[in-house]
Amino acid sequence: MAFKGQIVIDTERCKGCAVCLAACPMQVIELSKNVNGKGYNYTEVVNDKCIGCASCAMVCPDGVISVYKKQC
């Protein structure tokens, strides 16, 4: 059974620590070239390989990631 996932990142609260990048098994997340209001290079989704495993959200210290998934 395969899942397609989606994540929603609260980029204004993201501090760009990149811990989620290391946790993601599908290399879905990168640090943006752009910065948020606090000056951090926030995280962004760079491909559609997300499987909705929520690993990124689990290790995010600032709780900025919400995760969604559906069967496909």
Partner: peptide, 11 residues
């Protein structure tokens, strides 16, 4: 996302 049939896994 919810409208598209996704379920919330984590927030």
């Amino acid at each position: 996302l919810l409208n598209q049939g996704y379920t919330e896994v984590y927030t």
